[in-house]
Amino acid sequence: MRLRRCGSEAVLVEVDSLGEVAAVRVAVRAAELPEVVDVVPAARTVLVSVRPGAGLAGVRRVLDGVDLGHVVEVASREVRIPVRYDGPDLDLVARTAELSTAEVVELHSGTEYEVAFCGFAPGFGYLVGLPEVLRQPRLDSPRTKVPAGSVAIAGEFTAAYPRATPGGWRLLGRTDAVLFDPRRDEPALLAPGDRVRFEVAG
């Protein structure tokens, strides 16, 4: 674990894996330090920010006690997202995995995922737990516009696009779920630590 100070009110924690990111995120959240205002995980870092003037001593004490090899189980939300599996890359994913399209759908929808972190666009959650056989690289040529609601895979992640953006992930299907709405109390549907299941829509 490496700590990099970000001004007087934040510290960037650098680690080596998504599992270690989860260990840091869960430990800082579980400590319920009153001075902590935000915990922002990414692929290999966690940014922890505190109230102006509060200092980082309490955060550092928590970080000193983190066991990077162990993630404490905490209560988390379960989010279900309906999906129509009719994406333009479904056949490509099936051929690459040497599966039928029905088997791809069964594997993808039959797995429980966890939101590791959010980024790229507001409401875009990177979900881990994708079955090994479905882990495939991004497309050689990214699309200039991926439709909002597209459900996709790339590498070890799966995700749903909250809005239309460029992207190179392989598209399995689409959902009508509103993944980001700035008018809601919690604009993003998904948050780090949430458990997610994709359900086959009729």
Rank of each mutant, 00 (worst) to 15 (best):
M1Q: 00
R5H: 04
C6G: 02
S8Q: 11
S8A: 15
S8W: 09
A10M: 03
S17W: 01
L18F: 14
G19W: 02
A23D: 08
R25T: 07
R25M: 01
V26E: 14
A27V: 12
V28D: 13
V28H: 08
A30P: 13
E32S: 15
E35L: 12
V36N: 13
V36Y: 09
D38F: 03
V40D: 00
V40A: 00
L47S: 00
R51P: 11
A54L: 07
V59G: 10
L63T: 01
L68R: 04
H70L: 15
V74E: 14
E78I: 02
E78G: 02
E78C: 03
R84Y: 01
Y85H: 01
Y85E: 08
L92P: 08
A94I: 11
R95K: 15
R95I: 12
A97M: 13
T101H: 01
H108E: 04
S109Y: 01
F120D: 09
F120G: 08
G129T: 08
P131L: 08
L134R: 05
L134A: 09
T144H: 11
T144M: 10
E156T: 15
T165N: 04
T165L: 05
P166M: 04
P166W: 06
G168Y: 03
R170N: 09
L171T: 11
A177C: 07
D181F: 04
A188I: 06
P192N: 07
R195D: 05
R195G: 04
V200L: 10
G202I: 01
G202L: 04
